[in-house]
Design a protein around this nucleic acid. Structure first.
Length: 574
RNA sequence: CGGGGCGUAGCGCAGCCCGGUAAGCGCGCCUGGUUCGGGACCAGGAGGUCGGAGGUUCAAAUCCUCUCGCCCCGACCA
């Protein structure tokens, strides 16, 4: 490709709207342009990079027996009503109406559609397992789109679905997917980690997210040296205990005028936040419950929902709290609290002489002790794990890191096949619902994540596997016929050898060309300049390291081809 | 949905409080010239219904009302 005839608009300055490195650089390097909030045009360079990711994904999906199809973006509301998600999915599901007032969804994911295909066409266990996948545009009306294509409302995703006769077969495919994902992200040049996760709106029990390490990532991961890693939504940790051997002191009621928050109460009483027992009243599907947790911990509502098997969960309001506990908001406690189901977080285990609300205005108890002053039967892990909690497997402290979620794999079970009556016949002629799995990869998000991880102050530095071009030829002065000719020759010969080459044939000053070259971050740059021409050499520069190799002009094509191919083969997983 | 902020030339911004003198700056773009190894210089030029609508006023980018869009933080979320 000749730059002068290409469409590659670069920006000198940082666009005001972009905060993160990937967003900034994708705009500056001319990969994307915003059309509307969370909606982006992919320009040629951005499209090439995302096609590279797509092709890696295709190869790896095909390798494990995946079969590519293409489902429509539009799907009729009836299908979503069958699965129940027309109502459950909420506002994130984009809905449109046709001229006959029939409703359609713009697909955010395709469990319903693929299940419909399979229930109509697959009758026998002999046809299983079946893995179908597609690479297609998805729509999710995100509450808050941000970071460019990282959280967009329209984006490209690979979604795969597998159909099985039983759990065992699903488990085999799940493991294959896990390996395929590992290969895919490795080939994309990413540093990442698979972590245990929550299944959210898609459903299912076992699920892993693939997280690309990134400071600016939206997801938090808790990880242990032993290999355990999970998102903050699901991570479990043992909470370190403080002074569990302290002697119990007599219960005492103290005045705490106007002190409502943990911070206010504990500092007023000269205590630490961990010495307080928080009592939070929730309404779960219409039933009120009380959750007890240590003052320095946060309740993880996802865990709470799962324990309660609740669909809707909200905190009680001030009036409800007053009615249930007899005291105002901020002064609740378990002592003397009757007739309310109480759940306690494990952080309370081993606590002695706690501070809690007295269920009356401006009063707290001190030296409250479990078993003596109140009882709780139900103990669960209900808190958000935090840095320093101890790994439940090996006891070492957990560390926190942030990441961008680029893929997730789920074991769905029969959630959709049952709801949509998708069945097959087994050997005994018995009808069974398909056991299903589903597996997503955010294509455009993967491109962004790669940039987030591979950039410096000068711009992007593409991993070879997904670079839009492999080599950039840069003649420093195209008005010099000798340089121009040398560059052209190298360009056409490299091209003929199958390398992806961009020739910067623009009549620009060298400084501008170098700056742009670093910005768009092609892994290898061949500089054809006047300095070298006098000695009959060209320079091969590696973007990542800045390392420069001087090569005789005649050997340029040979050497560059060899270096690029070596880099490519090293980036491939065997 | 709560909180904060911003819409003025393709991009980045000033002007707004205190209405008139005000349609400005830098980059980019076009023409000519000098330049040419890390974002050159000189000269000339094109480009704006100041997000939109309504209002106040002799007069509105500037004040008021409504509205649309965008960004950030939080809540939420494959």
């Amino acid at each position: 490709m000749r730059w002068s005839r290409y469409f590659l608009p670069t920006l000198k300055e940082d666009p005001a709207e972009a905060e993160t490195a990937s967003h900034r650089l994708m705009l500056r390097a001319g990969l994307i342009r915003k059309l509307s909030s969370g909606i982006y045009n992919l320009l040629p360079l951005g499209l090439r990079a995302s096609r590279k990711v797509e092709n890696i994904v295709r190869e790896e999906m095909n390798r494990i027996g995946g079969i590519e199809i293409l489902m429509p973006v539009l799907s009729p509301a009836e299908l979503w009503m069958e699965s129940g998600r027309w109502h459950v999915y909420g506002k994130e599901l984009m809905r449109v109406r046709d001229r006959h007032d029939r409703f359609f969804a713009l697909g955010p994911t395709h469990e319903e559609v693929v299940t419909d295909i399979v229930r109509k066409e697959v009758r026998s266990y002999r046809q299983l397992p079946l893995i179908l996948y597609q690479i297609q545009t998805k729509f999710r009306d995100e509450l808050r789109p941000r970071f460019g294509v990282v959280r967009a409302r329209e984006f490209i995703m690979k979604d795969a679905y597998s159909f099985h006769r039983d759990e065992k077969s699903l488990a085999e495919t799940y493991d294959k997917m896990y390996e395929a994902y590992t290969r895919i992200f490795t080939r994309c040049g990413l540093k990442f980690g698979p972590v245990e996760a929550d299944s959210g709106a898609i459903g299912g029990d076992v699920t892993h997210e693939f997280m690309v390490f990134a400071e600016t990532g939206e997801s938090q991961v808790l990880a242990c040296e032993c290999g355990y890693a999970a998102t903050s939504d699901t991570a479990e940790g043992k909470v370190p205990q403080y002074r569990p051997d302290e002697k119990q002191k007599p219960l005492e009621k103290v005045a705490t005028p106007g002190m409502k928050t943990v911070e206010e109460v504990t500092s007023y009483l000269g205590k630490q936040p961990w010495q307080l027992l928080k009592t939070i009243i929730y309404n779960a599907d219409g039933q009120f419950i009380g959750v007890l947790i240590r003052g320095d911990r946060q309740i993880n509502e996802i865990k709470l929902k799962r324990v309660l098997n609740a669909v809707e969960l909200r905190m009680a309001d001030a009036a409800e709290i007053e009615k249930i506990t007899g005291g105002p908001l901020g002064f609740s406690g378990p002592v003397g609290l009757e007739g309310l189901r109480l759940l306690a977080d494990r952080s309370l285990e081993g606590m002695v002489n706690m501070v809690t609300g007295a269920n009356e205005v401006d009063a707290h108890y001190v030296n409250v002790n479990l078993g003596r002053d109140f009882t709780v039967k139900e103990f669960y892990d209900l808190s958000i794990a935090s840095e320093g909690d101890l790994c439940t497997r090996c006891g070492r402290p957990l560390r926190v890191w942030r990441g961008i979620e680029v893929g997730q794999i789920f074991k769905l079970g029969t959630k959709y096949s049952q709801a949509m009556k998708a069945t097959f016949l087994d050997e005994d002629g018995k009808e069974n619902p398909f056991v299903m799995g589903c597996y997503g990869i955010g294509i455009t998000r993967t491109v962004a994540a790669a940039i987030e991880q591979n950039n410096d102050t000068d711009g992007i530095s593409w991993p070879i596997g997904i670079a839009p071009f492999e080599v950039l030829i840069l003649p420093t002065n195209v008005t010099n016929p000798e340089l121009s000719q040398t560059a052209e020759n190298i360009y056409s010969e490299l091209h003929a050898r199958g390398l992806e080459v961009l020739l910067d044939d623009r009549d620009e000053r060298p400084g501008n060309k170098f700056k742009d070259a670093d910005l768009i971050g092609i892994p290898f740059r061949v500089t054809v300049g006047e300095k070298g021409a006098r000695e009959g050499i060209v320079e091969l520069r590696r973007r990542k390291t800045g390392e420069i190799q001087r090569i005789p002009k005649q050997e340029a094509v040979e050497t560059v081809t060899a270096v690029v191919n070596k880099e490519k083969s090293e980036a491939t997983v065997s």
